[in-house]
């Protein structure tokens, strides 16, 4: 997240000169980090923006990408790219990794230099952020994810009368994409924007899969672990074997769980459904630390520690175009 403060300094210096700045909030590059998972609705994506503003202390306005991820696709699917357009709407420069220093050079050349360059230390940005958790975490062991799984398209059912407090992320063997046999990983992740935790004093989460004719799933249903802690927010993960037997139909999954929100003072059973298609979800991102998965575009060059927003502060300029891309200040 080191590039954000530098970009904010460029904003402070050039917004008064008529230059407009926008962050585009895109699909998560690394879902599951700090508990965050891909939003299911534009309202949830806007809630992510609120949280990002709280954490980053940014003044640059945000644009939420559509739920079809149209902006991300139109700009090349990079995680931390940066673009400068001229007043006619023509692209001047494009960088696949944001480089505020090089951007400043671009603007100096086209708009002019500023009298006093704002420094990061001039900004009143938060030095850290507090992680809000609704209950204990790291009390349920994570499932060892088999290598090579890819994220698959998951569609929440429209019957939901409540938000999807727990969200399904599904990953599968590539062999399943072409109708064969393989493993399917089911992960139910509590979405931190709702402040909900599992209620471990009642029955644990339960799920069942309904298959199209000919498809075999084993086990076809499952129950979460008994947890000693009264409540927690850890993911509930399961691994099942699937034999598609050449069927093209999707899987239907029903999940039942108890969610509680202490701040709002409620605790209730929730039943929700999903459709799992045997199609790679190009926008699902990739959890950090995942082995061999290629379901998203989160990892670059083997580095496993970059947060989703311009954390590659040691990278050099990588402009793909524009006369000043990649220059060094003398």
């Amino acid at each position: 997240m080191r590039n954000v403060p530098s970009l904010e300094t460029v904003y402070r210096d050039y917004s008064s000169k008529g230059v407009r700045f926008y962050y585009v909030y895109k699909a998560l590059a690394h879902p599951e980090m700090n508990g965050f998972v891909q939003p299911f609705s534009i309202e949830e994506r806007l809630a992510h923006i609120k949280e990002a503003k709280r954490r980053l202390g940014t003044e640059i306005p945000w644009i939420a990408d559509s739920m079809g991820n149209d902006i991300k696709h139109a700009f090349g699917d990079r995680n931390n790219s940066e673009f400068l357009f001229d007043p006619e709407g023509k692209l001047i420069s494009a960088r696949d990794w944001s480089d505020p220093e090089a951007l400043r050079w671009d603007l100096e050349e086209r708009v002019g230099k500023v009298d006093v360059i704002t420094r990061v230390q001039d900004l009143d940005l938060p030095s850290g952020f507090s992680q809000r958790r609704a209950a204990a975490s790291s009390v349920v062991p994570r499932l060892e994810t088999p290598a090579g799984l890819v994220a698959t398209k998951v569609t929440p059912g429209k019957e939901a009368t409540h938000p999807h407090y727990a969200k399904l992320r599904a990953e599968l063997d590539r062999s399943l994409l072409s109708g064969g046999k393989g493993q399917l990983k089911l992960g139910f992740h509590l979405d931190p924007i709702y402040g909900v935790h599992w209620n471990n004093l009642v029955d644990p989460i339960q799920w069942e899969i309904r298959t199209p004719d000919g498809v075999l799933v084993s086990p076809g249903q499952g129950v979460g672990p008994k947890v000693a802690a009264e409540s927690d927010v850890d993911p509930r993960e399961f691994l099942v074997e699937v034999d598609r037997c050449e069927s093209n139909g999707p899987l239907e999954l029903i999940v039942r769980y108890y969610g509680c929100n202490d701040e709002e003072g409620w605790c209730m059973p929730v039943t929700q459904s999903y459709t799992i298609d045997f199609v790679v979800d190009r926008d699902a991102g990739r959890p950090q630390g995942a082995r061999g998965a290629r379901g998203g575009f989160g990892r670059r060059g083997g580095s496993g520690n970059r947060a989703g927003f311009g954390s590659g502060g040691t990278r050099g300029p990588r402009a793909l175009g524009g006369p000043s891309g990649g220059r060094r200040r003398n």
Partner: peptide, 22 residues
């Protein structure tokens, strides 16, 4: 095929897509 589209090139017009303001 894995889904990573090409980045726009200098001179390209701003894409005709929409998002949502805050």
């Amino acid at each position: 095929a894995q889904g990573r589209a090409p980045m726009p090139s200098p001179g390209d017009p701003i894409p005709s897509v929409s998002g949502f303001s805050e």
